[in-house]
Each structure stands twice: as structure tokens, then as C-alpha cells.
Amino acid sequence: MPLTLPRRGLFALEILFWIALAASFFVFPDRLYLLTQILIAALFAVSLDIALGYAGILTLGHAVFFGMGAYAAGLLAKAGWAEPLTGLALAFVLCGLVAYALSVMIVRAGELTQLMVTIAVGAIVVEIANQATPITGGSDGLQGISMWPVLGAFDFDLWGKTAFVYTFVVVLALFIVVRRMLQSPYGLALKGIHGNRKRMYALGSPVEGRLRFAYAASAAIAGVAGALLAQTTEFVGLDTLSIDRSAAVLIILVLGGTGRLYGGIVGAIVYMVVHDFFADLSPEFWMFWLGLFLMAIVMIGSGGILGGLSRLVRSERS
């Protein structure tokens, strides 16, 4: 018999979750870089969730937008304008526009074709970045980024305090926007398209337009996640664009649970913490243990961690 949670309780739980995240700043003052990178991975996974979990667009090339955002923010800083928020805005707009243009191809394709197209686009973009060495630094990476203080007051420090607070605030703000978006009628329409596309057509829903917007929004947020990584590490490598990263974020999202808003965040926390734990325990063979762990989670049941939890705890709404 699953536990039942009143609706207001669920909201309180959300607030508590974010307070706990913020409190990690004080609990783990010497792990701030890890926490920052968890938050960035979480935002990236949430962005993928919009496309994959809600809109049902299958993609194995989401790192294209992550990397594009990273390079946009990095190059802007190198070009002489190293104000962090402008970098985020540039990444957001650029990735959104590029994705909107690409979405023509993607929303018309079937699932397997979507996979193929997104992989192909990923391969092309990586090679462009590799060839454009004078601009991107190629495989040596984009060096010499030095960010200005956040809001002109908070310098990026060795301990990563500024990086964490800055990332936390940006991730939280974007998450609130995404939450609002997905809980609006628009989000409901996306779920409808995912569940039964033909029926949504029959209802007169502008299916393609909605999917294209979802893909663009998802890419724009992925771009911001990439820009955050570029700004907090002050470096951009080709790996930001790589298919490995696309696959890792997919694992994170599936681990946490797709289409559940918090799946990406929970997945990122669990994946990165477990990864860090095993890599410390056994620098040579951690992949084996991590693999075993992921398999164990999958065996527990579908829907990832949140899917498992939802079978134990129910909210009043459902």
C-alpha cells in the first residue's frame, strides 16, 4: 500500500529539496566544484527531459547544444566581453535559434530517423569545431578565458564559492521557468503529442509547431548549461560536444526518470556522486562498479529512481 502525500506536501517537498541543495554549500565547502558540476549536469538533463521525456523527441546529439553554448560563452569572453550573464543570454538565444532551424528535420522524422539525424548533426559539429582550430583551439581546447566578476562584485575564486552560488541561482531560475512551462496547458499538449500524436492532430493541435518550440527551448537551456560549464571552468574542450556527453546525459535522465521534471536533477546527483565515489575507491575499475550500479537500478523497475519512488509514494492528485 503506497504512502499517500497531500498535494501541498508535494510542494513543500520541492521547497525542501532546493533548500537542501543550497545547504550543501555549507555542508561540503570543499566539494563545491563537484556540486557545481552536478548542478550543471542536472540542468542539462532537465533540458533533455523537455525534448525526450515530454515531447518524445529521441536525440543522441544534445551535447551539440551544450557544447555550442559553451563555445559561445567562451568565445564571447575571449573576444573581450567576459560578463557572465551576457554569455548565458548569448548561449540561450543562439542555441534556441539553431535548434529551431534544425527542428524542421527532426520533428518530421520517425524515432529512429531522429536518432540518426541527431547523431549525424553531432558528428558534423564536432568536426567543424576540430577544423576551426584558429577559433576554437581544436582538440587543445579553448584557452585563456577569464571571466569578469558576477554582477561586477563576485570574483570566481579557487574554492568555487562564487561558481556554486552563481550556478545554483541560474539553475533554480531556469528550473522554475521550465516547471511553469511544463505544467501549463502547453506542457499538457506536449504530453498529449507524446502519448498519441494522431489524436492530437485530430483535436486540431498544432503538433509540429509545439514540438519545434519544445526542441528549441530544450536546446536553449542545454546551451545555458554548457555556458555555465565554460564560465565556471574557464575552459572549453571538444568533449563538450561529444557523443559521449550526449550519451552520459541520457543515462543520467533515464536513471532519474524521464518525463518527471525532477528526474534529471535526481539522476545527476545520484550518477555524479556514485561516479565520484567509485572513481575514488578504484581509479582503474570504477566503470565496472558504476555499470553494475546502473544495471541494478534498471532491474528495480522502469521509470528510473523517481519511477520507483512513485510506486511507493503517491500524491493526492493521482
Binding site: 570543499d30 566539494r31 566544484y33 563537484l34 558540476q37 582538440s139 581546447g141 579557487l158 568555487g160 560549464l229 571552468t233 575552459f235 572549453v236 574542450g237 571538444l238 568533449d239 563538450t240 572513481a279 575514488d280 581509479p283 582503474e284 570504477w286
Partner: peptide, 17 residues
């Protein structure tokens, strides 16, 4: 600390820690 392949963000985090 394991950096894996060319992973500048991971290498940077490990170095910082």
C-alpha cells in the same frame, strides 16, 4: 585521480579538489 581521456572539466575539478 582518474581523468579518463581528454576531459578538461573533469581534470580541472579533480585538480581543484
Amino acid at each position: 585521480k582518474d581523468s579518463g581521456g581528454p576531459n578538461p572539466d573533469v581534470a580541472k575539478r579533480l585538480t581543484q579538489e
